[in-house]
């Protein structure tokens, strides 16, 4: 019994970390400009595949590959933001949904063409392989590292948003964009910065998480629902909301998979449905739009 609970909590936390890394950027960009960017998962997939190519094919160091993937995806995302997203900022939600669906389709095809249809995972470095014994039970070292990494990112982001000038600007723009612009904050530049950072984090999430969530060309579509759940339950424009939502979803998902596998994600979806019904802005939302 205890064993089941511990394994639910542990695998749930690992999954939650991946979801958090990928979704937090989406939450903040959506909160900033209200863009319904469904294609955010494509950045995570791109990061994962870049790291895969570097580590598994070229033998680059794991952590160097993570860095390269993050920078490369951030650069790609800035180009896409300028060329493709900017014209639809002021268009309706439908245009944004369609545009991001187009990006998802194109990214699936490119990934399929470059890496084939089979699920792939980035090789874990030797230093993180094996099990770690922490007294009464041993855990896979890599997943412990993953969870610790997620915690570090969360603390860093929380600090950056709550305690720095850049964070204050972001919070101001999320709460009231017109007013933020009125006091001289350049929200467009701010948005580009946040978009790039969010995409870089997603890339890291995709690369680090490939051991938990395997890379396939259909990644952006398959996990889209999960990313959107984290964002919509967590509330837009927040750092801690998506963390809590990701943890809830991670625990819920692994509990469902371990305890009642025959039901699939049925109860997750029903729970989301009920939560959004009562709180359309999410459980932990701070942006009251």
């Amino acid at each position: 019994m205890t064993d089941t609970v511990i394994s639910i909590l542990f695998s749930g936390a690992a999954f939650a970390t991946v979801l958090y890394l990928i979704s937090v950027g989406l939450s903040i960009t959506m909160g900033l400009l209200g863009i319904a960017n469904l294609a955010h998962g494509a950045f995570a997939m791109a990061g994962g595949y870049i790291a895969f190519a570097l580590v598994n094919r070229l033998g680059v160091n794991f952590f160097a590959a993570l860095l390269v993937a993050a920078v490369a995806v951030a650069a790609i995302s800035v180009v896409l933001e300028r060329l493709i997203y900017r014209p639809v900022y002021d268009a309706g939600e439908l245009e944004q949904v369609l545009l991001s669906m187009g990006l998802i389709f194109a990214s699936i095809a490119i990934a399929h063409f470059a890496f084939g249809p089979l699920p792939l995972a980035v090789n874990v470095p030797a230093s993180l392989q094996g099990q770690v014994d922490i007294g009464w039970r041993s855990f896979p070292a890599y997943r412990l590292f993953l969870i610790a990494f997620g915690l570090c990112v969360f603390v860093t982001l929380w600090f950056a948003i709550e305690r720095t000038a850049l964070g204050a600007r972001i919070r101001a723009a999320v709460d009231n964009r017109a007013m933020a612009e009125g006091v001289g904050i350049n929200t467009r530049v701010l948005f580009t910065v946040v978009f790039a950072l969010g995409s870089a984090l997603a890339a890291v999430g995709g690369a680090l998480g490939s051991e938990v969530v395997a890379l396939t060309p259909f990644y952006p579509l398959e996990y889209l629902v999960y990313f959107l759940i984290v964002v919509s339950i967590g509330g837009l424009g927040s750092v801690s909301g998506p963390a809590l939502a990701a943890l809830l979803l991670g625990f819920g998902d692994s509990a469902c998979k371990i305890l009642i596998p025959e039901f699939g994600a049925f109860f997750i979806y029903v729970a989301i449905f009920l939560v959004l019904l009562v709180r359309p802005n999410g459980l932990f939302g701070r942006a009251q739009s």
């Binding site: 959506m30 209200g34 319904a36 939600e93 949904v97 629902v225 959107l228 759940i229 964002v231 919509s232 837009l236 025959e262 039901f263 699939g264 994600a265 049925f266 979806y269 029903v270 989301i272 449905f273 959004l276 019904l277 359309p280 802005n281 999410g282 739009s289």
Partner: peptide
Amino acid sequence: VILRTTGLALLMLGMAVALILYEAANR
């Protein structure tokens, strides 16, 4: 139920209806 919401929640709830039915039909 879902027409009371707007924006992201509406998108999500619309998807959720189909997903719930998918899982139910599978089960």
